[in-house]
Amino acid sequence: MDLPVMPPVSPMLAKPLKTLPEGWLYDLKWDGFRSIVFRDGDEVELGSRNERPLTRYFPELVEAVRAELPRRCVVDGEIVVATADGTRLDFEALQQRIHPADSRVQLLAGRTPALFVAFDLLALGDEDLTGMPFRERRARLEAALGESLRADGRGRVRLSPVTAQEEVAMRWFTDFEGAGLDGLIAKDPEAAYQPGKRVQTKLKHERTADCVVAGYRTHKSDDEAIGSLLLGLFTQDGRLAHVGVTSSFPMARRRELFVELQDLVTDLDGHPWDWARQLEGERTPAKGVGSRWNGGKDLSFVPLRPERVVEVRYDYLEGERFRHTTQFVRWRPDREPASCTYDQLDRPEDHDLADVLAVRR
């Protein structure tokens, strides 16, 4: 491979803000694996945010890049997987694609094929474009992909929509959440590409929920300090589902919490997650969910009587669980654990992913 921009490249990143900067270009925030694609003829490499290649995990994208991207190019974008019906993004299915067995990789490539959503162009032919303003890189990307994007929308390479109109962007922010999108990215139209720098901004969905605290894990550096609190919500049939964790505490508070929670420590007999006994030391209290990123990591927990309620800030649900680690807001001594149900959550209206991918500038 001999390109004007060579792998590995650390992607340009975004920092969170509460409002969109005026006069910028607004792109969608895709919920997938960030990837910079390098193509030099038949040679293809799928880079990642941590600069480790993802190439072997997505053979169908390697073939798509050869068929649908310019012969020599470097393109920044996101690898995503859609649900079986194609209506929304499926991050859980995407995570399953990272597997050590080649036979499994090949099976999943056919069963849950990925898409590559392009949003920036770093090199084309023999030209390094990273010093060019983003508005020019974007125009070059649209021109380069315009000839190769399939008109029927069935290709594996897609172009992320972008707009200069804030009102349009905010409409996307509201409407497209139902398709599984994560929010918006604002990009300075005059900025050069700056690898690894947080010079863009992101606007993400943010909500609060009252959850039951039903367990904890100790801190990795201190076994008498709280590492994270395990959160639950009651389903309509009265089951306490594990929905995620919260862990945003300073160390002094982690040690205080450890002492405070000892009176609630119990064993798994009669605990809502008593079935986790057989998985103790191996899994979280979510059946069949392990740590694909930290092989061998001990994910066991200390069960607590589900009597305390905490308010947390979250962005959105994926299935029954919060997609990301939640942020602690406050304890809620005024709330009864039984009142912490899924009914309190704000669920966005469904929106077909195909409509998102069909948007043009």
Rank of each mutant, 00 (worst) to 15 (best):
E307T: 04
D120T: 01
K15M: 03
H219C: 04
G238P: 08
T19N: 13
E43W: 12
T235N: 09
D298M: 04
C73N: 06
A169E: 08
R150V: 03
E256S: 08
P133E: 05
A354Q: 15
P113E: 11
L46Y: 01
G86T: 13
E167N: 13
A139F: 13
D128F: 04
F234L: 10
P306A: 09
V5G: 02
V312N: 04
R49T: 01
R154G: 12
V199W: 00
L20A: 04
L357W: 08
P59C: 12
R171S: 11
Y316T: 05
L129S: 11
V212D: 08
R198L: 00
R323A: 10
G270F: 09
D274L: 02
A64N: 06
Y216R: 03
S228H: 01
T174F: 07
L108F: 04
G238W: 00
K297S: 13
R52Y: 00
H219S: 10
V265K: 15
G244E: 09
F33L: 07
L257Q: 02
L233P: 07
T326Y: 10
Y57R: 12
E224Y: 02
A82F: 15
P16G: 06
V243S: 05
R347D: 09
R97G: 10
F234Y: 15
L121S: 12
L149A: 12
L231W: 11
D102T: 00
V245K: 00
S228T: 07
L25P: 08
L268G: 02
A169F: 01
L159G: 08
I226W: 05
Q278R: 15
E224W: 02
G110Y: 05
T174E: 15
H99I: 03
T325A: 14
P70L: 09
W30D: 05
V359Q: 08
F173A: 10
V309R: 03
G180D: 09
P303D: 10
R135D: 08
T201C: 13
V356E: 11
M6E: 15
E78F: 04
L229R: 07
V44R: 09
